[in-house]
Amino acid sequence: MTPGLVVLAGRYLDWGVISISVTNAAIIAAMVVVFVLALVAPFPHDRDDDGERRP
């Protein structure tokens, strides 16, 4: 390693061959959470929704 390096890496999670930055892991985790929420959260309906119109 070169002497005089003053840079610092961020925080990383290591698990076997996998190495991922905490920030990237947080982004991916947030995406999964948002995806699941999008599937299960109730979608608001307009008041007239009961009046479905046939084509």
Partner: peptide, 8 residues
């Protein structure tokens, strides 16, 4: 068309 997944 009644799910939050449609807004993405």
């Amino acid at each position: 068309v009644a799910s939050w997944i449609y807004v993405f």
